[in-house]
Nucleic acid binder design. Sequence first.
DNA 1: TCTGGGGTCCTAGGACCC
DNA 2: TCTGGGGTCCTAGGACCC
Length: 420
Amino acid sequence: MTTFALVDCNNFYVSCERLFRPDLKDKAVAVLSNNDGCIVARSQEVKDLGIKTGVPLFQVRQLLEKNHVQLFSSNYTLYGDISARVMQTLETFAPNLEIYSIDEAFLDLNGIGDLPGYAAEIRTTVYRHVGIPVSVGIAPSKTLAKLANYAAKKYPAANGVVDLSATKRQQKLLAITPVAEVWGVGHKLNEKLHTAGVTTALELSQLDRHRLRCHYPVNLERTVRELNGEACIEMEHVPAARQQIVCSRSFATRISDHASLRETICEFTASAARKLRSDRQHARRINVFIRTSPHTAPHMGQYYSNSAWGRLAYPTADTFELIALATRLFDTIYKDGYPYAKAGVMLTDLHSQDVAQLEMFHPSSATAKHDSLMHAVDTINATNSGNIWFGGQRARTDWFMQRDMVSPAYTTNWNCLPTV
DNA sequence: TCTGGGGTCCTAGGACCC
DNA sequence: TCTGGGGTCCTAGGACCC
């Protein structure tokens, strides 16, 4: 039997911001989404104000100002770097770990004797080395470990660690936990379960197998088994190859002309292609989409949203080819006279660069030539000495996302080093 | 006025095959 | 008069996750 630990950073983005602003330690702090649109991370003080995650900023602005909440635009350069440091520290406690998201990881704690003691040591070490507070949930399945972590955060008496190794403790926690808190139960499923009289995690875990099969999606059966202590979701040792790459943005200001919108499509395509190459993958399909704001009132103008798919003759990571196809697709869906609010590019049907299928009518030497050209471009762009971009792309201008309250890149840019 | 971005997986329906 | 059964693949849309 495996023993899973889920280590999750507390209010991660907020904790990252506080790291370099010790004056904010006990102050109310919130972090905003891209474009300063929504609240995506809240300190405890902000949670206590009843502000939910995901609410649009403009709806709560007054409440935030009244309570002197310190706001930050999201700074993913900083969060990504701090995340890497946390994971590095966790690795010293369990070589077998799975990084599940930017702020959480599953650890395989098989063979550890004093589990709560070990978990407490993890907490203090991460805090000492990186300065980020974490919570630890321990259980025989991932779903239970998630729940244990939820409890470790919710109940202060737990001191940030909950060990659900014992069946009795599992049952006790399940009985007092709303079913909506279970990993895999979202908004819709929660509604459906409530209608069926299932309100707690315990009731879900006791659902009749037959009823489950007939009336609910298959994944819920797995969740139920996991709640009963049966590990159905294994650790993923090597991260699975990505299946799609998306690059999209909402604009800080609306875009109403063909040329400008086309430039953003080129920008997104170039950026998606760069990610593709860093993954050592090739893409065969592209999707391009554009839309106006779905929130504008009907009398302000018609809503327009459209997308188009295109297929390449063979998988490629060549920015020239990808941009050529993307702009062709864009031209088929663009309509004049709309205030566009968002656009994006999606690459799918991805294949590993290393196992490329040779094409009968496409000389592999051409691919190799393109690959080395792209490699050269990426290498130059990775240095400070130069910046190469593609025809059609343009330097980021007024449309680029709004981030008025962004903190410095303290740990990744020499010019932003904090002074003491 | 102002509403993020990047993912995975499942399901249903249609087209197509033998 | 009478029109099967089993399968794959693709796509759109939805649900869920962080």
